[in-house]
Nucleic acid binder design. Structure first.
Ligand SMILES: NC(=O)c1ccc[n+]([C@@H]2O[C@H](COP(=O)([O-])OP(=O)(O)OC[C@H]3O[C@@H](n4cnc5c(N)ncnc54)[C@H](O)[C@@H]3O)[C@@H](O)[C@H]2O)c1
Ligand SMILES: NC(=O)c1ccc[n+]([C@@H]2O[C@H](COP(=O)([O-])OP(=O)(O)OC[C@H]3O[C@@H](n4cnc5c(N)ncnc54)[C@H](O)[C@@H]3O)[C@@H](O)[C@H]2O)c1
Lengths: 244, 244
DNA sequence: CGGAGTTTGTGACTGCGAGAACAAACTCGC
DNA sequence: GCGAGTTTGTTCTCGCAGTCACAAACTCCG
């Protein structure tokens, strides 16, 4: 996009664009990567933007624009090489090597996460499970021993962990986040329904099921209201030019 | 949907604005609601937009703008009454009464969801758990008996369910979604890493942990690249007087 | 070798959302 | 009762993101 080389020096390499990928695009790259993986599993070697867009559930123009932020990895008149593009996206995201991850709070949700195989297959490796409850400690979950919360800093340092998952009750979430940041973690995935405050430089993403359900409920209410209104309109006879 | 023309009458409420709340606002209303609930639990009867915004982790101007879409429920010079505003938001979202919900796929994640108390306390009631595996059926999870997937339509009709949760493997997700839609469900919360296609009028929201982690990984990579670059710059000479 | 057909990459346009700033409206003290 | 102080509701502006449309670049076939 607009080779604005007016940037300070920095003549890094053949493709300069590596700067400033829009956040909305970053959020879609993993979706494209998954679609590509799925194509590769079906032994499809190349695909058009149209095909990939369909597989990813987006508009093809948006897909092409997104990919153009990474560089020109397609061939006009042909399409994209599945393996090549996969690698380029993985490299851009930074999942060409595995990221060590720790999970704090091995309750209902934490155990499900620990047992989830989808993480390891997508560039993440759970290196430790931590919990504050004495009765949890030493128990084996998903082949890992649950360790005391106090070991956090030690583990983070030893394993060079930069990503942490919080699945403790909301009341404990801020404390855990503080401890994580103190131990050197700089990216947090938070499942607790709490607003975390962290210093600049630390990224937090939250996953909140209640919110998702409430958003669905809102739209559901509106749908109900709409059909009720439509019925009322029919009742009323004319009113509103919707009359047949 | 249907771009409605200037709706006439609609004398239901004192304020007419009930139309067209921006999607971004809808996504924040549940956050405000939770912050208000938290304030109410601490016996705080009223609050300013500034306080509420802090509790919800947003900008106060944005909060006021969001709330203004619902109507004028605050008092200038005073602030918002916590209970009153809570009720108004809950009413707008449509969670003044409980929504029946079913969960399909009672594996690792499905069991965690079934055991999760946070749903029931926020306007949702799990009325049935369904799974296709014979060995799951009849088992009790979270006080509910797991029922065969074939009972889906019957349950949806009997309990008037309009919201369904999918926590089956990705390969089965589309089939489950189709069955849900066929049974009359019109809102789906999907945990499977798959792109669902549904007819118009059906809402789908997805929760994808791998994507969240990959987004974090992207930013983490950039942070690493940045500090490496900074180090290189220091090597180069001036810039940042960290000259050791 | 050249033209037809295909598909990418990108510029232009549009609409939404975030944030700052301010007028209107309310309370409180005197 | 009135002015000072406070806080909401709204207006304005700016930037980001989505979509369209098309030129550039490639392949294939005659
Ligand atoms: N279970 C779900 O499906 C689900 C869904 C959405 C959100 N959540 C959220 O995820 C979080 C965990 O839910 P859950 O159902 O697993 O709860 P849980 O009570 O089953 O597990 C919480 C675990 O965290 C541990 N813990 C508590 N305080 C701690 C601390 N300070 N340090 C370390 N460990 C601590 C507890 O010992 C316990 O094992 C909650 O915030 C919940 O709201 C859960
Ligand atoms: N476990 C996690 O923490 C986690 C995290 C993120 C995403 N997910 C996703 O959630 C989904 C479920 O994960 P899980 O770990 O619970 O898997 P799981 O294998 O433990 O459970 C899946 C359940 O679905 C049932 N099932 C399979 N096909 C079905 C069908 N057609 N109809 C009805 N039921 C069917 C199975 O019998 C099983 O009980 C997966 O798509 C996974 O990628 C899980």
């Amino acid at each position: 996009m607009t080779a604005r080389s007016t940037n300070t020096g920095e003549g890094s390499g053949a493709h300069d664009p590596h700067r400033d990928i829009p956040e909305a695009t970053v959020a879609r790259l993993p979706v494209y990567l998954r679609a590509l993986t799925s194509l590769a599993e079906r032994n499809i070697a190349s695909c058009s933007s149209e095909e990939l867009a369909t597989a990813a559930g987006v508009n093809s123009a948006k897909l092409r624009k997104d990919l153009s932020y990474l560089g020109s990895y397609g061939t006009r008149g042909v399409g994209y090489d599945v393996d090549y593009l996969s690698y380029q996206i993985a490299r851009e995201i930074g999942v060409t090597h595995d990221w060590p991850v720790i999970i704090v709070g091995i309750g209902n949700l934490g155990q499900a996460l620990a047992n989830f195989s989808g993480f390891s297959s997508r560039g993440f490796r759970t290196v430790a499970l931590l919990d504050a409850a004495p009765q949890m400690q030493g128990q084996a979950v998903a082949g890992l021993e649950v360790r005391p919360f106090a070991d956090l800093a030690e583990i983070v340092a030893a394993e060079q962990v930069s990503i942490g998952v919080i699945s403790v009750p909301a009341t404990a979430a801020q404390d855990v986040a503080d401890a994580m940041v103190g131990a050197g973690i700089s990216s947090i995935l938070n499942f607790a329904p709490a607003v975390l405050s962290v210093p600049p430089g630390v990224d937090v993403r939250k996953v909140d099921l209640s919110i998702e359900l409430q958003i669905l409920a809102y739209h559901e209410s509106r749908k109900a209201a709409e059909s009720a209104e439509a019925a009322a309109t029919v009742d009323n006879g004319s009113e509103e030019g919707i009359t047949a």
